[in-house]
Simulated scan of single mutants.
Amino acid sequence: MAGHNWIDLAQDADTGIETLRAHFEGHAYDPHWHDSFLVGVTEQGVQQFNCRRSRHHSTPGQVFLLEPGEIHDGDAPHEDGFTYRMLYLDPAWLQREITAVFEQAPTNSQLSFTQTLTDDPQLAQATSQAFQSLHTGELRIVRQSALDQLLERLTGQLQWRKRYHEDPRLPWAAHKAREYLHAHLHQDIGLDELAFACGVDRFRLTRAFKSAFGLPPHAYLVQLRLARARHLLAKGEVPADVATALGFSDQSHLGRWFVRAYGLTPAAYRKRCSNVPDSQPLA
């Protein structure tokens, strides 16, 4: 990590929720996405990021909310950088817990945040308290109480939206390409192969895919592999094995992409999530 950047990451054993506190100066991370719901609070400075085709500026006390799959980046527009704390909430866990509040989810629906940034001070406090109790390993009853308070405040920022197997607003070819990438994420896929599977030429496919999902197919495939790498590393798998399993050329190749997206190395992420001792250099 460059300059005075730092990251402090942990994972709660009971819920699987990751907690992260970090500070960045200048460029923080490249466009990427997570398969978790992100709930965070900016502590210091201004956090600038692009999401939902808009540029946002999160200032101290503001809560930022991102859904699984939402592409976002991060930069510090001022010299003193920014500091934030974040919770990564597993979608299955959140939906299970939140249905106790909403009673019953509408048919064929999924959870969605109503906005990306909010000035709700009670939600900011609940987020910070949940972070603190999980990150420091408080008693189970304390952690559960803090999460209940967070869920209670979070309901004001959540809604149910209709779930589509194929979103009619997006081109069919883009959906087909995304399905193909998910099914073959371990393979060395070429654009010609992908275009042939979708029945269009690669130029039209690239334009349609980027319009639909915000990234060209090759960048989406990298993000897909990185999301899978996080899961494997958190389970304690060795970075070199993860790199091989997911189609990266070697451990260094995985490491370069991982740092650009998440700000820390695969080995460091593995160590902090799984508490498995390092048996090899960081990469």
Rank of each mutant, 00 (worst) to 15 (best):
210 K>N: 08
173 A>T: 12
211 S>I: 07
163 R>F: 13
203 F>D: 13
168 P>D: 10
207 R>D: 09
188 D>K: 09
187 Q>L: 04
185 L>F: 14
175 H>D: 04
184 H>C: 04
195 A>I: 06
181 L>F: 04
184 H>K: 12
168 P>V: 09
208 A>L: 04
179 E>A: 13
180 Y>H: 09
200 V>K: 05
200 V>S: 07
187 Q>C: 05
187 Q>V: 00
160 W>S: 09
213 F>G: 00
184 H>I: 08
177 A>T: 08
190 G>D: 01
158 L>K: 08
176 K>G: 06
186 H>G: 14
180 Y>K: 06
204 R>W: 10
203 F>Q: 10
199 G>V: 04
209 F>G: 04
204 R>Q: 15
161 R>D: 05
206 T>A: 10
171 P>G: 08
160 W>H: 14
180 Y>P: 04
165 H>N: 14
190 G>Q: 09
203 F>N: 11
193 E>S: 11
181 L>Q: 03
200 V>A: 04
194 L>N: 00
208 A>N: 02
210 K>H: 12
184 H>E: 03
169 R>C: 03
161 R>S: 02
163 R>N: 13
180 Y>N: 04
211 S>E: 15
165 H>Y: 15
173 A>V: 13
200 V>D: 02
207 R>L: 07
201 D>S: 05
188 D>S: 06
179 E>S: 12
159 Q>W: 08
169 R>M: 11
182 H>R: 15
208 A>M: 02
174 A>E: 02
176 K>R: 14
167 D>L: 13
167 D>C: 11
172 W>E: 01
182 H>Y: 15
177 A>E: 09
172 W>S: 06
